[in-house]
Simulated scan of single mutants.
Amino acid sequence: MWQQAIEDAVRKTRQNIEQFGLRFPHITTENRYDWGENNDWIEGFYTGMIWLCYEYTGDAFFKETGLKHLDSYRERLSAKRELDHHDIGFLYLPSALAAWIVSGSDKGRQLALDAADHLMMRWRPDGGFLQAWGPAGHPENGGRIIIDCMMNIPLLYWAYEQSGNEAYREAAICHADKSRRYLMRGDDSTYHTFYFDPESGKPIRGGTHQGFHDGSTWTRGQAWAIYGFALSYRYTGNKPYLETAKRAARFFIAHLPEDEVAYWDFDVPAQPGTPRDSSASAIATCGLLEIISHLREGDDEKQTFKNAVEGTMSSLVKHYATIGKPDEEGLLQHGSYYVRGGLGPDDYMIWGDYYYLEALLRMTSNIPGYWYERVREQAR
């Protein structure tokens, strides 16, 4: 079953490249992607899928395409086009760093380092956090952090390992600590966002942007917490990060519906027509696999997490994947983007497709994605 799913993903990725060239997918409400320019926060996931396909197949077609994409990311960073946000890791880890990890591209390595410098422009030393959106001092967003950023700070950890510049690591750890304290709640759920006073750094309140309400648990945010804190543990060895990832994972698993694929928010009434978020479950699965990699054999919780991975991935492959639909552009149906805002409430999500394929390759081929560097000898 896993092999069939991987082969289907590789075919569709190749088909998309052949049909749309070097354009990038954007979210619609029409069960297809809108293919256009590199100007959103999501393009890195598509390039990451191309690198995953290359690692799996060894087909130079994918490698050449992934390397060609670097020009677009370099031009965008140089122009600072639509980059006034924290999602720099999502853009440059699965594209630039992936090129370095997989092919040894010096161009990719330097681009990833330059992207880390750009992410550091979000650092607010008075508050001790990376500002999510907008310019410094913005009246609404000047003091806002969001849980998603836990998946962007691996770019800073990596930049520290490459350069020895402590500023990268200190910012990443400080932001992770602040996220752990204020975005994680006592019942192991998460706030999507938290607000601080931009000048003093004083905590004000938790809230949401894309969730059901301020006190609810947006499922994709919970998934970011699972994977993000597990990655912070990988980079730092700080055990509280691993425990936090496990806490978030327990909550996620305990609140899943019968088919083990999440609705878009854990607090939304589950009724006919309530949108799912298959992308949240794909992200959470990758996070669980990362946690599992750090647990000893014989640990009861390791088996619990393995069972959760098996259940969710079986459900995604059997009931949400587009296997058997060769003309579809996406891999996973029933993802959601911003339900309350009416943007992609039930459609393909390119990040869902990426994490779905990453999970499949983690499970079968020891290909773990592009959130940390592997042994250099593995580069082709």
Rank of each mutant, 00 (worst) to 15 (best):
L130Q: 04
E260G: 03
A248I: 01
A136R: 12
K107Y: 12
F45N: 01
E170S: 09
S315C: 05
L242R: 05
P94R: 00
P326L: 14
V317C: 11
R144T: 08
I292S: 06
P240V: 07
N366Q: 11
R23W: 04
D197I: 09
V10R: 00
W351D: 12
H319K: 13
D214F: 02
L83I: 12
H26R: 14
R376S: 14
Y227C: 04
Q4Y: 00
N165M: 02
Y56L: 10
K325D: 01
A60K: 14
I367M: 09
G58S: 05
R340Q: 14
E243G: 01
L70M: 07
G143P: 12
A245P: 01
M49C: 09
Y372L: 07
G127L: 05
A116H: 01
C149A: 13
R23S: 15
K302P: 03
N152C: 13
T364N: 03
R296N: 09
W351C: 04
W264T: 02
G48T: 06
P257R: 11
R376I: 12
L113A: 11
L83R: 04
I204C: 01
T57C: 09
E243P: 05
C174Y: 03
R276A: 07
A60N: 10
F90S: 02
I204D: 09
R376W: 07
K68D: 15
G36A: 12
E297V: 09
E199W: 06
E140W: 07
G311I: 00
P257E: 02
Y235R: 00
E377T: 09
K202F: 07
H118R: 12
F62I: 04
H319T: 01
A132T: 13
V317D: 00
N152R: 06
R374T: 08
T322V: 03
L331K: 14
D299F: 08
T13I: 15
D214V: 03
M363D: 06
I6H: 00
G128M: 06
I153L: 15
S95Y: 01
L256N: 06
S336V: 10
C149P: 00
Y338T: 05
G137M: 05
D259E: 11
L113N: 04
T47V: 14
F229V: 06
T274R: 11
T274L: 05
W123I: 10
Y372H: 13
A308P: 12
S315V: 01
T274F: 10
G89Q: 09
R185M: 11
G211C: 06
Y338L: 15
R144S: 07
G48S: 07
S72G: 08
H26P: 06
N31L: 13
I42A: 15
G143V: 08
G228L: 05
R76Q: 10
D214C: 06
A115N: 08
N39T: 10
E170H: 14
D84M: 14
S72E: 12
H86M: 05
H85K: 03
I145E: 04
R181W: 04
P125A: 06
A225T: 03
N31D: 12
T193G: 00
L119H: 11
R247H: 12
I17E: 01
K239V: 13
S200P: 08
W264Y: 15
G48Q: 11
D148L: 04
A136N: 08
F212K: 02
R296Y: 02
E199R: 10
L295V: 05
S105K: 08
